[in-house]
Amino acid sequence: MMQYKVSIIIEKDEDGYYASCPDLPGCQSQGDSLEEITENIQEAVELYLETLSPEEKQKLLSKEISTMTLEVQVA
């Protein structure tokens, strides 16, 4: 069994949490808590990866994605 690292983006709004994986187009999930969304997106990623060939996994998971937070001032 291979292990992979994937980037996950988690957003919170009035309806709960939403997570997506930019490495895997269309791979996303929702949850009511941070714990739930973490479990849900992990399951979604694992299921998504099971559908891919080794070549597809290599192509999709060879990208490097960085995230950052910026503070900006708006007049």
Rank of each mutant, 00 (worst) to 15 (best):
M1E: 09
Y4C: 09
Y4K: 02
K5F: 05
V6R: 03
I9L: 15
I10P: 01
E11F: 04
D13F: 09
D13A: 00
D13H: 08
D15M: 10
Y18V: 11
S20A: 07
C21N: 03
C21F: 06
P22A: 04
P22C: 11
L24N: 03
G26L: 14
C27E: 08
C27G: 03
Q28I: 14
Q28W: 02
S29V: 07
S29W: 00
S29A: 08
G31V: 09
G31E: 14
D32E: 12
S33D: 07
S33A: 12
S33V: 09
L34T: 08
E35Y: 04
T38Y: 00
N40S: 08
Q42N: 10
E43A: 15
A44Y: 02
V45E: 05
E46Q: 02
E46K: 07
L47Y: 15
Y48E: 13
L49Q: 07
E50Q: 13
E50P: 00
E50G: 06
T51N: 15
S53K: 05
E55H: 10
E56V: 01
K57V: 00
Q58A: 05
Q58E: 12
K59L: 11
L60A: 00
L61I: 04
S62Y: 09
K63R: 09
E64W: 01
I65C: 05
S66M: 13
S66Q: 10
S66T: 11
T67Q: 07
T67K: 03
T67C: 11
M68L: 05
T69K: 13
T69W: 13
T69Y: 12
E71Q: 15
E71T: 13
E71M: 15
V74P: 01
V74C: 11
V74E: 07
A75P: 13
